[in-house]
């Protein structure tokens, strides 16, 4: 299934619960965006022998193509890649703010369309919390001085997010598009006169 493939790419433990892997799909996107910023050193392609022709490279996992297609949606609707690739240190907060509206509006629409996102805990931030034996360790991150075993007493810092459904677009015909390994994130635009 597409959502599992997409998520497993970035999650260390493929046997984890569905809900958690789906959530990690989102984290994965964050990682991918970060690696794009980092430049070519972190590019996910690693072909040891330079003599190997491009078409002989192993076909990319469909999951990769689907994550790139999703990134393309965030770019198309929310201009996310344009934003992270742009140098903004010289821009005023007002300019960045205006751009943030475009990103917020677009990315929010895309994310709400393909995920059903909800907080994991409904308590307000700052609420005292007790975690007993058998708490969902995959969905909680304990910070501070943590004893060896539960029960744990603490304070809710972040109520977490999870997704209750994932409906990522499935990618078709990726190999047919000019022999590319992945779909393009944003096509070249040419205005014809």
């Amino acid at each position: 299934m597409a959502l599992l493939n997409a998520a497993v790419l970035f999650y260390p433990d493929p046997s984890a619960q569905l809900g958690v892997t789906a959530l990690s799909g989102l984290t994965g996107l964050g990682l991918l965006v970060a690696s794009l910023r980092g430049g070519e050193t972190k590019a996910p392609v690693s072909v040891p022998a330079p003599a190997v022709a491009a078409q002989e490279a192993p076909a990319p996992a469909r999951g990769e193509a689907e994550v790139v297609a999703f990134l393309a949606l965030l770019q198309e609707k929310g201009r996310l890649v344009d934003f992270v690739q742009e140098e903004i240190s010289g821009a005023s907060d007002e300019q960045v703010g205006a751009a943030a509206r475009v990103i917020h509006d677009g990315c929010r629409k895309v994310i709400n369309e393909y995920f059903e996102i909800a907080p994991i805990r409904t308590e307000a931030e700052g609420t005292p919390l007790q975690l007993g034996e058998g708490y969902d360790a995959g969905a909680h991150r304990l910070i501070g001085s943590v004893p060896d075993r539960p029960p744990y007493r603490g304070r809710l810092v972040h109520p977490g997010w999870e997704t209750r459904s994932v409906k990522l677009p499935r990618v078709h015909g990726a190999d047919a598009e000019g022999g590319r390994r992945w779909p393009v994130i944003a096509p070249v635009e040419v205005e014809i006169n």
């Binding site: 409906k167 677009p169 990618v171 015909g173 047919a176 393009v184 096509p187």
Partner: peptide, 29 residues
């Protein structure tokens, strides 16, 4: 079709037909 190469399920289908230029899009099956 929701993106150039992506397919997904939607409750509504736009009542729109786009006529691509030759070779512009690869048709899905």
């Amino acid at each position: 079709r929701v993106t150039a190469s992506g397919v997904a399920e939607k409750d509504l289908l736009p009542s729109a037909i786009y006529l691509p230029a030759q070779g512009e899009q690869t048709p899905l099956p």
